[in-house]
């Protein structure tokens, strides 16, 4: 058994109550959604909150709704529900595809979209037991002062390993947070920050309540994930692509690559494409650019040379699929 550290559990019945609780309990409290990330991490001694605030009773945060020009997905919607939602599959295909390949079936049934977006970054020197990390001498992100991935590194570069993050960014989604100061909306691209020790812009006391995905005509999106096994594994690399078309020709393209470091990376080359380029969509050029722009780090288990090579392949496959759909 891996005993959990001791804590008190709170189960607020509304978002307001949850926010009030967080304010009262302070930084010693952590939110619990599906628990599929928080609990294994706590069992490995990575977090030891004195208070755990369970969001289980917040039924209002469950479900996929259409609100005007947006798809609003409650934070407590399970990944299974996101993956199975007809609306999501139609208007936010990359997100539905990403949700469908998280972990194994049980994780998707338990795990929530909110929990996935707020997933702790992962690193092979971090996601280990207390004994193991102790034997290593700990690291910057937790209890230590050195990084084992980047020698002499002063900043943690643990990998964003949440499958939905890249999709949310590519789809230009908005993260909705509720805190003591009210509601705050952040583009997904700004929600994730390049610090492996804390890779979201969520402030102390805030609750992620929903993800708003704009619904646009002529939009297609896809998600590609690299992993060794057909299930369970976190991404070794992931690519989300959004392609917007108008009158049969491409108007905008976004390629987001993740599981590299703490923040999913928007492919600059894709953003710079002019109208003429968009019309032809030079897949190989983009894939080569991705290879130049992305450098997987030896932060997660798996052959880093291979992961690097796969940047090109995955980007190519994602773009190929997106264009075939469009």
């Amino acid at each position: 058994m891996l005993p959990l550290p001791e804590f008190t559990v709170h189960t607020p019945a509304s978002v307001d109550e949850a926010v009030a609780l967080l304010a009262k309990l302070g930084p010693g409290a952590m939110l619990l959604a599906g628990g599929t990330d928080l609990l294994p991490n706590m069992k490995q001694g990575l977090h030891a909150p004195a208070h755990v605030v369970s969001l289980q009773r917040l039924g209002a945060l469950r479900g996929v709704r259409r609100e005007g020009d947006a798809l609003v997905i409650g934070a407590m919607t399970t990944l299974d529900a996101v993956a199975g939602s007809a609306e999501a599959k139609t208007h936010a295909a990359a997100l539905a595809e990403a949700a469908a390949v998280v972990g194994g079936p049980q994780h998707r049934r338990m795990g929530t979209l909110g929990g996935n977006l707020c997933l702790d970054t992962r690193c092979r020197y971090y996601n280990q037991t207390a004994f193991w990390r102790g034997a290593l001498g700990y690291c910057l992100k937790k209890d230590g002062d050195t990084c084992h991935v980047v020698e002499g590194g002063r900043k943690c570069v643990a990998a964003a390993s949440n499958d939905t993050a890249a999709a949310a960014i590519a789809l230009e989604a908005t993260v909705v947070l509720t805190g003591p100061a009210g509601i705050r909306r952040l583009p997904a691209a700004d929600f994730f920050v390049a610090d492996g020790a804390r890779n979201t812009a969520r402030r102390e006391g805030e609750l992620l309540t929903a993800l708003e995905v704009p619904v646009r005509a002529g939009r297609v999106s896809v998600y590609e994930k690299l992993r060794r096994r057909g299930a369970i594994d976190f991404p070794l690399l992931s690519v989300a692509v959004r392609l917007d078309r108008e009158d049969g020709s491409a108007r905008a393209l976004d390629v987001v690559i993740s599981a590299l470091a703490a923040k999913p990376r928007r492919l600059a080359a894709a953003q710079k494409l002019g109208a003429a380029d968009l019309a032809t969509l030079p897949i190989d050029t983009l894939a080569d650019a991705a290879l130049r722009e992305c450098n997987p780090l030896p932060n997660i288990e798996g052959d880093v040379v291979w992961r690097k090579q796969m940047v090109r392949v995955l980007v190519k496959r994602a773009l190929g699929r997106a264009t075939s759909l469009a």
């Binding site: 092979r124 280990q128 034997a135 290593l136 299930a231 594994d233 288990e301």
Partner: peptide, 28 residues
């Protein structure tokens, strides 16, 4: 295809758990 029991040069196991030591699922 999958399995390799790796110990780092420091003597520390590379990943003593079922996520890092990957045994096949029904899809593999």
């Amino acid at each position: 295809i999958f399995e390799e029991h790796l110990i780092s040069p420091s003597g520390l196991h590379r990943g003593p758990n079922l996520l890092d030591y990957r045994i096949p699922t029904s899809l593999d």
